[in-house]
């Protein structure tokens, strides 16, 4: 089923606002001095959480089409991916600025001494080329290299989940949940690829 252009624009606008709500919530809480006893930690945790959530959401578009045959979300996948990058940047800025006040010696020490910071930092760095090449122009210009580059998203997801997993002290419920969802999304893709391959093999026989 094809979606009309004006309908699509409405869907896009709705999601644009919807995906922004975690930030709006933080701003409202901040204005009302309601970010809790450790407001910087609250902002760091929340922005990090949503960056990872949106990353996995963007990875669920194809599995959604493969399993329940809903295909319109492909039109908002780029937006979701860019939002993930946006929340990731917010997360990093909070860390560099509010948490460490650009004390670079302290920050470098933190990045290279603590594995969870290192993998988090890496995953954000890797997101940068994906964000830059997200435009239609870039897609066209890069041809098949675009897809190859964007396979990086799987590595980014793994690094981000590790970042979360290694950060928590003892209760790994949340990062484990993200890991399970990620594994599920991957297995749907792998499963369908197998079926497709088998189908083509049968055809050639």
């Amino acid at each position: 089923m094809k979606i009309q252009k004006n309908k699509l624009n409405i869907i896009k606008s709705i999601f644009f606002v919807l995906l922004l709500t975690p930030l709006i919530r933080l701003i409202i809480l901040g204005i009302n001095d309601a970010l809790g006893a450790n407001p910087i930690e609250t902002v760091e945790r929340s922005t990090g959480y949503w960056a990872l959530f949106y990353l996995l959401l963007s990875l669920s578009i194809t599995p959604l089409r493969l399993t329940v045959k809903i295909s319109w979300p492909i039109h908002i996948r780029r937006m979701i991916g860019l939002y993930s990058f946006f929340y990731g940047c917010f997360h990093a800025v909070t860390y560099f600025w509010l948490d460490h006040w650009f004390d670079w010696q302290e920050i470098l020490n933190d990045i290279f001494k603590h594995p969870y910071v290192l993998v988090g930092f890496l995953s954000l760095l890797l997101l940068i080329p994906l964000a830059i090449t997200s435009t239609n122009k870039m897609m066209k210009a890069m041809g098949r290299w675009w897809k190859r580059l964007h396979y990086l998203v799987y590595l980014i997801a793994v690094l981000s989940i590790l970042h979360f997993l290694w950060l928590v002290k003892k209760d790994i419920t949340e990062p484990a949940l993200f890991a399970i969802i990620f594994a599920l999304l991957i297995s749907i893709r792998v499963f369908h690829k197998r079926i497709r391959l088998n189908a083509t093999n049968d055809y050639h026989r």
């Binding site: 970010l35 450790n38 902002v43 509010l98 460490h100 006040w101 933190d110 603590h114 969870y116 290694w166």
Partner: peptide, 19 residues
């Protein structure tokens, strides 16, 4: 192994209070 111990955040400061 996970957290730096050279600095600390004193609870009670706002968003713009350094460690």
């Amino acid at each position: 192994p996970r957290w730096t111990q050279s600095t600390e955040r004193r609870i009670g400061g706002g968003l713009f209070t350094p460690r």
